[in-house]
Nucleic acid binder design. Structure first.
Lengths: 205, 205, 205, 205
DNA sequence: AATGAATGAGGGTTCATTCAT
DNA sequence: GATGAATGAACCCTCATTCAT
């Protein structure tokens, strides 16, 4: 039983409406192009009310991005047991693509570099951390150096984000699972297949 | 040779000073946070002069990014013969990392998603096209589908850009060649080594 | 009666102050020479407030001119019954001169051609329409052609405006009624008296 | 024999081209909306050259208006002998309408209140003076007071200018002579005819 | 005399933020 | 808590004018 007074419920409701409105309008117009007025109008709330709930536009966006990653993690965590297998990771990647398909606006905002420089940095770090979380195996500390795992995380995050953004803009007829499997294959096997198919001479390596 | 009047040389000189100033100041403060006034002050030129040379801030930035990719391509092209080998591609990737180390500001501007949404899109397309140029092999048309090569290009571009940006922010003691080789290894072989080292159980795949 | 919240009254008050300030400052400096800043400073209001109430300078001026003609018509209408006499018209003209004496600034703005080309055109049309309203007699439709009454309106408007502007710049010791009677006499009798006094030979006509 | 060096001829030529260009472009766009650049481009002359010949835009426009009135006076003077008759004045008025038809652009600039407040004042004074010149009869000094003749001049100027501007915008099928005769009739006889036709009751005067 | 690159004051306008109600 | 009128700093951009060539 959430024992909230009507006041408190009303307040939370307003806050939520601002978040939803911002999510939509920012996705539609871009972060910089969106004014506080655009958000409050979409939320059917007065301009002043905004500042009752958020310090400024960046503050609200931070919450939006944070919530996005929280949700993403909740979607992915069920697949990740302590002793995880490659098969689990594959499922996790599929879950990420499903999530991005269902939350295109938010995904774009989280990872499309539309927000301010600071927020983008925050988001990218969130994602790299998320990837490390994905790949991290308990009890293997020290087997791979911190540097190496960060390199891997950046690599995976970069490739994954780019493919994800490319795909939600136009799916080219590919399903979430196809995208995930494609990414998974490249990550595990590299592109030697593709490259050899392309006819590159590997003899001089 | 240079059949320019002094007038014309003077004008080009001013234009160049604006470009250089913009490059530095945008890299330092970010695209959106940079006003035209910041640029002209850094160039020690009056505000009106800016509009004599460029339509607006975006116009100038477009030139900056375009020039960056032109220069990058010139650095890379010598390594790419018609019948290219994997070894050549490795050299090309090394050249890219050397370039990014020598032009950190510009590289950040080109690929750091600091500019406007439109310019970022332009830059990302430039880069994907650049990667396709890198991987394209003559005489293999049809062997790989257009869709597949676009997927590969997005994958490579995403991973490469992210590693590059991560590295120029803090090199973590890694040389350009080490970075390039790391990227090259991952691209060709995938991360099976790393992953197996991490102790992931591959049995269930 | 006035079912306005204090908020609304406050807003209308600010609007009115802007209109009054604009009226004075435009009359003093001219339309083109007056900046929005001049108006807001005279109204003791911030620059941004202006755009809360008016789209731009032209918008405000349009309101000013419109209000002026509304007021003028209200001053004049009591004298004009359906079956009007020349005597009524004389009284109406006197009312116009009284009005112009009491509202020199606004009169200059309305008819002094200081505003933008578009506004001047609007004002001149207002005035010609006003003159037609003054001279129009019910039940005489068809007796004078539309063309002829337009010619008359232009003639009367031109002469009246010019005399009015001349007079409010320097009254030369003439009272409003004297001016009105002078204009009325010329309009009704023409200038044959004056001309003959001037010694022009009328024999050759 | 105009003994001008090529230099001098060239200079005068440039000056004339600027004047012609200004006349056209100001007529087309209006005085305020016309920039110096618009004029120099139309004259196919560099921007700096403008300031070699004129102090500023207002200076050039002054010359334009001055020339216009000079030409107008030359057109009208032949009709005006020392002992002038009403018939001569009628011819003079006809000449004015012919002139305005042939020089619509310039006429609009001279009397259409498009220029700056100062220039408009200058023009209106030119015209009032022109009208006084038209109506002045030698040897009658003192018969009419200075004040009275100024009143008449303002009346005639106002009515004439308004009719002229109305007519050059759309001639409504009326010839210059018809316009002139119409104006002449109203000036001499007043509008009693028109008014009585309109059915106004004159009994109460 | 002619050029046109450079100047910089000043214009209009937007918008994040405050605060009295 | 909610409102929205008011604020004013900051922005982009234009354009009359200067001056070295």
């Amino acid at each position: 039983m959430t024992d909230l007074t009507r006041h408190e419920r009303r307040k939370l409701d307003t806050r939520r409406r601002l978040l939803e409105a911002a999510r939509q309008v920012i996705a539609a117009r871009g972060y910089e192009a969106t004014g506080v007025l655009d958000i409050t109008e979409a939320a059917d709330v007065s301009k002043g009310t905004f500042y009752l709930h958020f310090k400024d536009k960046e503050d609200l966006t931070r919450v939006l991005i944070h919530e996005g990653f929280e949700e993403l993690r909740q979607r992915v965590d069920p697949y990740l047991t302590a002793n995880r297998t490659l098969g689990q990771i594959k499922e996790a990647i599929r879950a990420v693509f499903h999530y991005s398909a269902e939350n295109r606006d938010l995904f774009r905002l989280m990872l499309g570099h539309q927000a301010s420089a600071e927020l983008n940095l925050m988001a990218i770090n969130y994602y790299a951390e998320f990837v490390e979380h994905l790949l991290r195996q308990e009890g293997t500390a020290g087997r791979t150096s911190a540097l190496q795992s960060e390199l891997v995380a950046q690599f995976v995050a970069g490739a994954g984000v780019r493919l994800g953004l490319w795909w939600i803009e136009d799916d080219h007829g590919l399903s979430p699972d196809e995208m995930a499997d494609f990414l998974f294959q490249f990550l595990t096997e590299g592109m030697s297949n593709v490259i050899s198919v392309a006819g590159l001479d590997t003899g001089t390596l």
